[in-house]
Structure formats: structure tokens, C-alpha cells
Simulated assay, not measured.
Amino acid sequence: MYLEIITPDQRVFAGEVISAQFPGVKGSFQVLNNHAPLISLLERGKVTIRTTQGEQAVTVDGGVVEVLDNKITVLAEAVLS
């Protein structure tokens, strides 16, 4: 499954992932391969990305996530360091 995380000024992550966990406004949720279509608001928090190379995290300052046909698109307000 393909994940892309972008902000108004940069592409933060783009690539194949095994799973991704998101800070939804109504609680944390995880997306795996063949997930049902979904659009959700994100609150400030950690997006955990699991790939074949390991796990990494990106902290977003809110945004929107869309899941459709094994592609996840995150439009983040900003990425915090």
C-alpha cells in the first residue's frame, strides 16, 4: 500500500508501507492493506509508519487523511519537529 504525507510546502513521506497509524479526532486508528475507503480529520499527534525497513514516526499538526484503493494520502497542516 502506498502512503503520501504532504504539507502546503513540502512532501514529508512517499512510499510503500505495511501499515500506518493515525491520530484521528475521535481516537487513534490503524490502516492496513485493503482497508475500506475512508476520510478522517486528524488532530495534532504522531503518525506511525511501518515499512519493510522498520518503523518511523512523523508528528503532524492536524489535517485530513484519505484511504482509497490501497493509497493513503495525508494532507497535514504542518509537520512538527
Rank of each mutant, 00 (worst) to 15 (best):
1 M>N: 08
8 P>M: 13
8 P>N: 08
9 D>R: 14
9 D>V: 13
10 Q>I: 07
12 V>L: 07
14 A>Y: 12
14 A>N: 14
16 E>I: 14
18 I>W: 10
18 I>Q: 14
19 S>M: 09
20 A>E: 06
20 A>R: 05
21 Q>G: 02
21 Q>H: 08
22 F>M: 12
25 V>E: 14
25 V>G: 05
26 K>L: 15
26 K>Y: 14
26 K>M: 13
26 K>V: 11
27 G>W: 07
28 S>Y: 09
29 F>Q: 03
30 Q>A: 13
32 L>T: 12
32 L>Q: 10
34 N>K: 15
34 N>Q: 14
35 H>A: 13
37 P>W: 14
38 L>K: 04
39 I>E: 01
40 S>Q: 12
41 L>V: 03
43 E>Y: 03
43 E>I: 03
43 E>S: 11
45 G>M: 01
47 V>W: 03
47 V>I: 15
48 T>F: 01
51 T>C: 00
53 Q>W: 00
54 G>Y: 00
54 G>K: 03
55 E>M: 01
56 Q>R: 10
56 Q>G: 00
57 A>V: 07
58 V>T: 03
58 V>P: 01
58 V>I: 14
59 T>K: 13
59 T>A: 06
59 T>M: 11
60 V>S: 03
60 V>F: 06
61 D>W: 02
61 D>M: 02
62 G>H: 05
62 G>C: 01
63 G>P: 00
63 G>H: 05
66 E>V: 12
68 L>I: 04
68 L>V: 01
68 L>E: 06
69 D>V: 01
70 N>M: 02
70 N>T: 01
72 I>N: 02
73 T>R: 14
74 V>Q: 09
77 E>C: 08
77 E>N: 15
77 E>W: 05
77 E>Q: 14
77 E>I: 10
78 A>K: 15
79 V>R: 08
81 S>M: 08
